[in-house]
């Protein structure tokens, strides 16, 4: 039994959760949603176990580092954080409809890791050997996950906006437009705090490794671009006329910037390429 096998299996569990939520939504069967929540619990436990085992495996191979050092490991961790965050939101707001957007994202992340990336454990290159590594990566991915969920909620908002009075699992009275709008705001605030911590720990790390806290390398710059977009969005809410639809679009653009920061930057030259 090794961690990549556990994580491959968990990929299918996430897939099942996503499937159940979408089925509950399409066929308007709330019972599927209830089962799906339990499936998410299983995914999260299995995902955590997989990461813990992988951590042990790095020691067995004689390197001994937190499993957050390459694209495979970060995608697996991304899925976990989306799962955990989703469970919190469901507990707090009782809105399983958010699972319809959150779980497919978690599934895509871990599926991309399992199918598209090498799961070999590699040693750390000298620049990655820092106590800042864990703080930086964890903060960034909590932020990214919150933005991912905000993105999903914004999509729901735009869908519902087309026909606010329609009935059905998603379109019942429960999440009104203003609840979805407020929830997007909550998620973005949460994400913004963690992205801020992520950028700051990254800057402190760069300063201990290269003697400068900011060097405008493409990954740094893209994280700042993302930060600018969400800062604009937080302020836009305070201006009359920028609420609702525009906020939803900004949240979608913000998440596109997150994705580019995460994946797209690997196509550009720089220090951060996670490959």
């Amino acid at each position: 039994m090794n961690s990549s096998i556990i994580l491959s299996v968990i990929t299918f569990v996430y897939g099942l959760a996503a499937f159940l939520y979408v089925a509950a939504w399409v066929f308007k069967k709330e019972k599927f949603g209830k089962i799906a929540t339990w499936v998410v619990y299983i995914s999260v436990v299995g995902n955590t176990a997989g990461i813990a085992l992988r951590w042990v495996e790095t020691y067995q191979q004689g390197f001994g580092h937190a499993p957050l050092s390459n694209l495979y490991e970060s995608l697996v961790f991304f899925a976990l954080v989306i799962g955990v965050l989703y469970l919190f939101i469901e507990k707090k707001y009782k809105l399983p409809v958010i699972g319809v957007v959150a779980m497919p994202l978690a599934f895509l992340s871990i599926a991309y890791a399992s199918m598209g990336q090498s799961s070999n454990i590699q040693p750390l290159m000298p620049a990655l050997k820092s106590n800042w590594l864990i703080a930086h990566v964890v903060a960034c991915f909590i932020g990214y996950s919150a933005f991912a969920i905000a993105f999903g909620i914004s999509c729901l908002y735009l869908m519902k906006r087309v026909n606010p009075d329609r009935k059905g699992f998603l379109f019942t009275s429960t999440p009104t437009l203003s609840i979805l709008d407020d929830l997007t705001h909550q998620m973005v605030k949460f994400g913004f705090l963690f992205l801020t911590v992520g950028i700051i720990t990254g800057a402190a790390w760069a300063n201990s490794a290269w003697g400068r806290y900011w060097g405008w390398d493409p990954k740094e710059t893209w994280s700042l671009i993302t930060w600018f977009v969400y800062a604009a969005m937080l302020h836009a809410r305070l201006v009359r006329g920028w609420q609702g639809k525009r906020i939803a679009y900004m949240s979608i653009i913000g998440f596109a910037a997150v994705l580019f920061t995460y994946f797209g930057v690997n196509l550009l030259p720089g220090l951060h390429s996670y490959q």
């Binding site: 493409p218 710059t221 600018f228 977009v229 604009a232 836009a236 201006v239």
Partner: peptide, 15 residues
């Protein structure tokens, strides 16, 4: 808001 958006867009050039 306008400044933040322009900063975000122009920053892309240097990447």
């Amino acid at each position: 808001i306008i400044l933040l958006i322009i900063l975000a867009i122009t920053s892309i050039i240097g990447t």
